[in-house]
Design a protein around this nucleic acid. Sequence first.
DNA 1: TGGTAAACGAAAATCATTGTTTTTTGGCCC
DNA 2: GGGCCAAAAAACAATGATTTTCGTTTACCA
Lengths: 158, 158
Amino acid sequence: MVIECRLMRSPEELVKSFRESGRKVTPQREKIFQILQGNKTHPTAESVYAELLREMPTVSLKTVYQTLHELVGMGEISPLDLGTGSARFDPNQSTHHHLVCTRCHSVKDLYLDIEDIQIPGEQLEGFDAGTAEITFRGHCSKCRTAVSGQSQIAVHQG
Amino acid sequence: MVIECRLMRSPEELVKSFRESGRKVTPQREKIFQILQGNKTHPTAESVYAELLREMPTVSLKTVYQTLHELVGMGEISPLDLGTGSARFDPNQSTHHHLVCTRCHSVKDLYLDIEDIQIPGEQLEGFDAGTAEITFRGHCSKCRTAVSGQSQIAVHQG
DNA sequence: TGGTAAACGAAAATCATTGTTTTTTGGCCC
DNA sequence: GGGCCAAAAAACAATGATTTTCGTTTACCA
Ligand SMILES: [Mn+2]
Ligand SMILES: [Mn+2]
Ligand SMILES: [Zn+2]
Ligand SMILES: [Zn+2]
């Protein structure tokens, strides 16, 4: 299976790209680029905001949403609705799917080789299926331990 | 391919089941059962409410949410988050997937024979994948017509 | 036919997200 | 470096979906 890896560009490249497209580069935006770079946690706007607040105590949540939307518009990150309450943002632009823990809401990337999901034509009825997202729901290893041994003291492996 | 068909029980059976489990049966609830029976539109709480209002002008949206949650808890309907804004509820309890129109937000059931989606073990890392949901996004036949012929007068096939 | 827990309706609260308004600032010209 | 101006930030009000609160009504079992 060949996986083509397509990630959000580096903060430096994004700075360049923002300037080139007439967008302005602010310290807030640069810091958001850094928070997102290589981030595999599928953060929400709120969690990006929380991290940003540690260095910029006056930043507003609106600024975070605005920058995330810019990045989505530029194709640098993808918005995800995994049914965990708030929207999540994924700097991993490779074709991939997700494992969602129904207990702790953690999200893990999953690479599947399935160009071969065939929709029976008679069910399509003219529907033009562009993309297929597969979401697996279950329990992550931490939560599996916790659930099976609920009466015990929960010991989570780091 | 063998599809096992599992639908929400009939209003009469639900009345019985509610009583048996100590829940009370009210006219509001009975009407909600009827609205859901055989409903393939994947309604939102709001759309159930709208239909209910036509016969019970004083009913409250709270009552609708409460009853829908009861039914979810009893395994009679499934909550769906398809990224269309609000939660949807599905009385079709058969294993199935969905086609979602990104333009008009209509949702169509899709029966796929894929017990064979194999998650490569090395990616699982202890994750216990219970269910797999596949969501196809694209344009329904109506919207395909509308999109491709935007400058024309839209002619929707019924 | 009561008594009582459950359900109801109305309205306020909450959560995620977006809009509006005012102030500040980045990028550019001199 | 100083000035300009549109874009962005901040502050905060508003929205839509859902939940909570609370006083009133009702289903249903004795
Ligand atoms: Mn991902
Ligand atoms: Mn369905
Ligand atoms: Zn977990
Ligand atoms: Zn459509």
